[in-house]
């Protein structure tokens, strides 16, 4: 600290320079996951309220979603969760290259999920089910089709786009973190003795996966 005295710019050192608390890091991650669950929980709550209110409309609208595509996406995400776990085990056993390969597959899975999702959205847009960014309902053109649907179906598609959209956002964030984690594995920051960053990222990925496990039946399988 005395080195900093009189320096042009004083930056306080972290008192944790030598204090590493991996248990604390894990605890913080679990707390963060609580907030994620509650964030989506509010949306699931809205879903359950509106589904009770518009039970027929929800079934009708859900029957227009492609179950096959949904199933494929579910399998892709499940596979990616597996690869994360394999990667953690590989690091613990000191097999760096396997871990990196598994990270790579995870990121590819995330990308595949997003690409498939985007085609799904595009197909809906092509049929006039889209969310215009204009503030009025009669935005003209395609979104009029959505505006003319029964209220229940409108709410269904609204929830569908927002929930899968928020989920996709989490997938993107996850992929970015995995890319960083891969670099950290290369640099040996994540190593045999210290895998907590990878573990925490894995936990996050599992939550993202788990949320999809609930989204899938609620949107694809009720039709």
């Amino acid at each position: 600290m005395s080195d900093n005295e009189g320096a042009f710019f004083y930056v306080s050192e972290t008192p944790h320079a030598e204090h590493v608390d991996r248990e604390g890091d894990r605890l913080a991650m679990w707390l963060f996951l609580f907030t994620e669950i509650l964030l989506f929980g509010a949306l699931f709550l809205a879903y359950s309220v509106y589904r009770t209110q518009y039970i027929d409309d929800f079934e009708e609208a859900a029957s227009h979603l492609n179950t096959t595509v949904g199933t494929v996406n579910t399998l892709i995400l499940l596979l990616s969760s597996l690869t994360v776990v394999v990667s953690i085990v590989a690091i613990r056993k000191g097999n760096k290259m396997l871990a990196v390969a598994m990270m790579f597959i995870t990121i590819v899975c995330g990308a595949a999920f997003l690409i498939i999702k985007s085609f799904e959205w595009k197909e809906k847009f092509a049929h006039g089910i889209q969310l215009s960014l204009k503030t009025t309902v009669d935005a003209g053109g395609a979104s009029e089709i959505l505006g003319n649907l029964p209220h229940g179906q409108q709410v269904f598609y609204g929830l569908y786009f927002v929930m899968t959209g928020l989920h996709a956002l989490h997938v993107i964030v996850g992929m970015i973190i995995f890319a960083i984690v891969t670099v950290l594995i290369f640099k040996d920051v994540i190593n045999k003795k210290d895998v907590v960053i990878l573990e925490n990222t894995g936990l996050y990925w599992h939550i993202v996966d788990l949320i999809w496990i609930f989204l899938f039946p609620l949107y694809y399988l009720i039709g």
């Binding site: 009025t136 309902v137 409108q154």
Partner: peptide
């Protein structure tokens, strides 16, 4: 806090999308 966070964001989205999350006129 997360619950109110997403609820407030839904209301923001309601202005930009033709979906009536909380507007009875739109379901």
């Amino acid at each position: 806090t997360p619950v109110v966070g997403i609820t407030l964001m839904l209301q923001v989205l309601e202005r930009f999308m033709p979906i009536g999350w909380f507007d009875p006129a739109k379901g």
